[in-house]
Design a protein around this nucleic acid. Sequence first.
DNA 1: ACAAAAAGTTAGGTATACCTAATATATTTA
DNA 2: TAAATATATTAGGTATACCTAACTTTTTGT
Lengths: 228, 228
Amino acid sequence: MLKPSDEKYLRAIYQISQSENTGKSTISELAYYLELKPPTVLERLKILEQEKYITYTKTDGIHLTRSGQKQALNVVRKHRIWETFLHKVCKFSWSEVHELAEQLQTVNSEKLIDRIFMLSGEPKFDPHGDPIPDKSGTLPASERRPLLNSIEGCRCTVLGVNEDSAEFLNYLSELKIGLNEKLVVEKIFAFDGTLKVRFKNAETALLSSKVAEKIMVSCTKPGCLCGK
Amino acid sequence: MLKPSDEKYLRAIYQISQSENTGKSTISELAYYLELKPPTVLERLKILEQEKYITYTKTDGIHLTRSGQKQALNVVRKHRIWETFLHKVCKFSWSEVHELAEQLQTVNSEKLIDRIFMLSGEPKFDPHGDPIPDKSGTLPASERRPLLNSIEGCRCTVLGVNEDSAEFLNYLSELKIGLNEKLVVEKIFAFDGTLKVRFKNAETALLSSKVAEKIMVSCTKPGCLCGK
DNA sequence: ACAAAAAGTTAGGTATACCTAATATATTTA
DNA sequence: TAAATATATTAGGTATACCTAACTTTTTGT
């Protein structure tokens, strides 16, 4: 049986690997994420490695094994279901849910998660737009489409790009839009199709239709009519 | 700020003091209740005493201070609200709720408790019939009446007795009915008013109307028509 | 009332989860 | 490519929450 703090580690490793394009995590990132010091993290990683949840080498970083990935996805599932419940059923704001879900995710009852999931209307995405894995660890399929096909109010996640010229990628990195970024389409200017998007929950940017055409996203707003 | 394990101690001390007629708890009872060894408990009690939540002397046992009582009632509140939510909203059985509530009670959010409380219909009693203290630590008033005035299906808690002859008290202790015992009235025999009651969640007893007249209880079944 | 049993206490040990400071190894940049 | 910087690692320390074994005090039963 996994301890609560093991679950935190696995979820953190998973989250970091998702937000990196390399898919690898380092000790200092993990330490920063977990608000611990690197020696503490290293010590624990050795145990997680013995238990075959991860592999770790200095050069190659931290990777989840198949078994570790399965566990991690289960924790992610619990976490995102709690977040959704807190937001939709208990009416907590977007920004309050994370910390509470962190605590609730440690509660050990598959049955409780099932009930909470039902009470929340069996959602496919959490309030941040992140997909909720099913019990077998499968993420819900999401339709990949250009950001350009959005409608106002659409919430979506960046899955990738359709062009990899340095100019384009530099431009995106200048805007600080990366893989898995969550975007909210605030306004679409009919004149030339420019999109005003909000992201990192605060910043906004104006994207020309030429750029928006090349950013591939999936919509995470339930019932959204975008791309139709 | 109280640690989760402090909360367990305070709740346990409160619970034990409720089920004893002396109102005092001992180290070994507490150790048994918490599934710990006496030296562990003693060690911790010294800290709780320093922090002014309890007083402890070998001869006088463990007592909650005013501040300790306030904390304990708050934990009891959280625990019983979770139990009710699990039972009424999540449809867990009577017997499953305790252990889960124990875990959930450690989650630190007054606001969450408020929401869960609302979702459960602002109950006055938990699924075991125990009263839920309000935020200021006040227990809901319960009407004191003889067990005799019950109707079938009535669930109630023993508050005391109306006679203290040794014969009567010995008889009750023989039946293993004590203070705060929860009783379910299973059947009333019209012939002579004998009551069949179930308690300790398993045992049953037949009580003559003479006995039932002298056992004072309060009903904890919402909307029950007993005593009317 | 005194021996036996129970309860409380002390002393000392283990495991864990964290830390800091110092050292070693990579990586970056001039 | 060497120096500067960042990251990883080792060694060793602290606090806590538990334990067992041995001893002391209190309670109980004859």
